[in-house]
Design a protein around this nucleic acid. Structure first.
Lengths: 469, 469
DNA sequence: GGGTATTTGTCCGTATGTATG
DNA sequence: TCATACATACGGACAAATACC
């Protein structure tokens, strides 16, 4: 049952019931009212259109007698099936109702080593459901009211504690801005940093972020990446005032930036009043060897780091809760330029997440997943042993993917095609380059979303097609 | 239980357990670990720090013997209360953990006639809960995966049908973009319309939108408003290529744009290839007299209208689902400039809303609320009868607020102050002006969020202080 | 609500490097 | 050179408390 908007013209030569009748007939003919669909009741439509009920009834009677609709006593009026047949001719005349969206390739893979996939089977759905239920039961009214622009204070406090203990981030809740996805936070950031228009990014990098900055009209600078991450020397030769950097686990190379270079980076930032570092700490939760790597923000005493994090990786992409920690010097600008953008995350979701973390479920889930991913990581490394002579394996101390670089003369394209031929999907690193660089033939092997048997089968197949004897 | 990020230096002169011990002691002293808070278990911290369990155990033993923490067998280690007392001296040295946010005035009103308030008491929370529960029970995995950038197709189809039947909007699902709030959609729109930098807005207008466009660096033009809404004649004298307009129910004046002027507006837009009309149809659901007013978009045959709508008014602000309908000519730009911004609404929420609408609950709720608001509207008009000689009452055929303009010499400021003195909050229209115009002393009386007795009491009090004898 | 799996402090044995005699 | 003691780090076994279904 839906309302029906009809532009009734009181002065029209047509009488009211006729206008209603013709409008609905048209809707049915054009297929805009589906077969079997219920029309509004005479009472509600009359109320809606501000006409007498008998006027609507008259119009419906007409439709009834012409077979467009049928009346089911005590239930309502419904569009007839026959009417549907009659409109087939009209269908072509009207614009198509639903154009098909660009289709996904219906290819099904034996193993899809997507670096963005994560495992969700262990997620405590039951707990999530219970918390959701409790929250909906508890406070009804307030929850559906407008919330704070930065995000609910309680959740910001929780994130604050989590970031401090888990990532060494030093901040106060008022520095935190919660938003639906990093994309959105970057849009906000543009407003906060207005005026700064040259940004340096790693190459290769996370191209989604690159494209966002590019679409915002920033002048883009590329800085190459080695085993220690972004090369600060190269950065110094650009005239960028902003740097987007992933020090803890560079995407896609997996490079970890050593302390010495972090200090160089912080020093670079301190040399200009308008220089800032945007630290994307996207999947720092998962690390397999070596001591934990604190965030760049934790070493920042000059207030030069803008910290970006997300729960999409650690909990689920659909949660879409990300956060940004602003240095004090930018808070004022946030209040001036952005505080009127209301928070994009629903308060209910904020409350659910807050309770999920507060009650320790997040910590436990993280520990569990760390263990699982560590197991998969070890398995993949084990399975990749035969590859070691012909491939370089890197980026292997954190995250959910490895990087394989061919030393046996295979091109990246060949690697992808050979893998695809046996139903295995791998991802070329060249997609992550924003400029033609000295690309080596490298592929990304994401293991997060695959089960051990899939990993085994997938890599077995890769061995068959990639290794030359 | 939290992880503790400690920058362990393997080559340090200090041994491992000592580094752990000192770090935690520091955290406790600075109050960053609260009294009674649980430390991570020896196992998990050892795992996290990649050291042996006994190393952590050793550090904990040290803290134990010095009284910083206590051990509860099989349960964990906890920060002692005594330790808390000891750190009082250190507290001042460290930066405060949580600064208080700027406080809300604790003023409580007898009646707050906010034009943005809505009534939530009749919302079918039970249904919402049930749908939520069902959805969480049904499809677990897919729901937590990444969704389509524009929003889930099914919801877009549903919105498409709703808009068509209820607002006369003609569109296909692929023209719809779902986002968390109008603010966000406007941010996206900037990217779609990149290059266009002069926008005309009504004056007075919805200042939130004004400030957003302003903060994006648009050149702002103001066009005054009369009883028929935006004055197109005035618009023609500006060099704007964009217009933000609320034809169905202008905020705050409540003006409804007549057909003739709509056609002028559409004609204006058709005269330039880059001209577009942004139609904000923010609260068109509620209308009390006269025929339903179809959207401007429904009269647009040239593809010049960008339609903005939201469920925040009709369902709840916390839902934060808004939508934008792009004309075909802008779809290409959307795909080029914006399709990589992933949707800011969580898929779960999208599914809940979709089912809520599909199952007819939205329609029913809307009918119910229409009735309730109509009742309140009638009540307010009845109560305002004594005001008619000294005030002009306008904007009274739709929406959730009325406009009162004093004819008795009272200034707007006086009206607000007099009302506040008797505990009644009303809102001055001058807040909605973006430029000093010929403002009349007007106040907005929002009735959506108040109960009949509050309305009666509030207006009774206003009568006492506003009416001169 | 009750049974099972996991977590956790505690206790204990072991290994390694260094200093001492 | 060898034996001993000590500090530090590692990992297994146990029983109770807790979490999860």
């Amino acid at each position: 049952m839906r309302d029906i908007t009809i532009q009734l013209q009181i002065n029209s030569e047509k009488c009211l019931y006729e206008q209603i009748y013709e409008h609905i007939r048209q809707e049915i003919r054009e297929g805009k009212l589906f077969t079997g669909e219920r029309l509004p009741s005479t009472r509600s439509l009359a109320d809606y259109l501000q006409v007498a009920r008998s006027t609507v009834e008259y119009a419906y009677d007409q439709l009834l007698s012409e077979g467009y609709i049928e009346a089911r006593p005590y239930r309502g009026y419904f569009v007839c099936a026959e009417a549907d047949l009659a409109n087939m001719t009209d269908m072509n005349a009207s614009s198509p109702r639903f154009l098909p969206e660009k289709e996904e390739k219906p290819m099904t893979w034996v193993a899809d080593f997507s670096p963005h996939a994560i495992e969700m089977s262990e997620f405590p759905f039951g707990v999530w459901k219970r918390i959701t239920k409790n929250i909906l039961n508890d406070g009804n009214q307030e929850l559906f009211a407008q919330g704070e622009a930065q995000g609910d204070l309680t959740l910001r406090q929780t994130i604050c504690r989590y970031l401090h203990s888990s990532r060494g981030v030093n901040c106060r809740p008022e520095q935190i801005i919660i938003g639906a996805g990093n994309d959105y936070l970057i849009l906000l950031l543009e407003k906060i940093l207005n005026g700064m228009r040259t940004i340096a990014m790693e190459n290769p990098t996370y191209t989604r972020a690159y494209r966002i900055f590019q679409s915002m009209g920033y002048e883009m600078k590329q800085v190459s990446v080695d085993q220690g991450g972004l090369r600060v020397r190269e950065l110094e030769e650009t005239d960028a005032d902003l740097v987007y950097v992933m020090p803890s686990h560079q995407y896609p190379t997996g490079a970890v930036m050593p302390i010495s270079r972090r200090n160089e980076l912080l020093k670079w930032a301190s040399l200009g009043q308008n220089r800032f570092l945007i630290e994307d700490d996207y999947d720092s939760e998962f690390r397999y060897k070596g001591k934990p790597i604190p965030s760049l923000q934790s070493s920042d005493s000059a207030g030069k780091v803008i910290y970006l994090g997300t729960f999409s990786k650690a909990i689920a992409p659909a949660i879409r809760v990300s956060y940004m920690v602003l240095p004090d010097s930018l808070l004022e600008k946030y209040w001036a330029n952005c505080s009127f953008y209301s928070c994009t995350v629903s308060r209910i979701d904020q409350r659910i997440l807050d309770e999920f973390i507060r009650d320790g479920y997040f910590e436990r889930y993280l520990n569990k997943m760390r263990k699982i991913y560590r197991g998969k990581h070890a398995l993949v490394l084990e399975l990749l042993k035969p590859f070691e002579k012909q491939f370089m394996i890197s980026g292997d101390n954190a995250g959910l993917h490895l990087v394989l670089t061919a030393k046996n003369g295979c091109s990246e394209k060949e690697l992808l095609e050979k893998a695809a031929a046996v139903g295995v999907r791998v991802y070329g690193m060249s997609d992550s380059f924003v400029e033609q660089g000295n690309k080596k033939p490298s592929v990304l092997l994401g293991f997060g979303g695959l089960q051990p048997n899939e990993l085994t089968e997938g890599i077995k197949r890769l061995r068959g097609v990639w290794l030359k004897d």
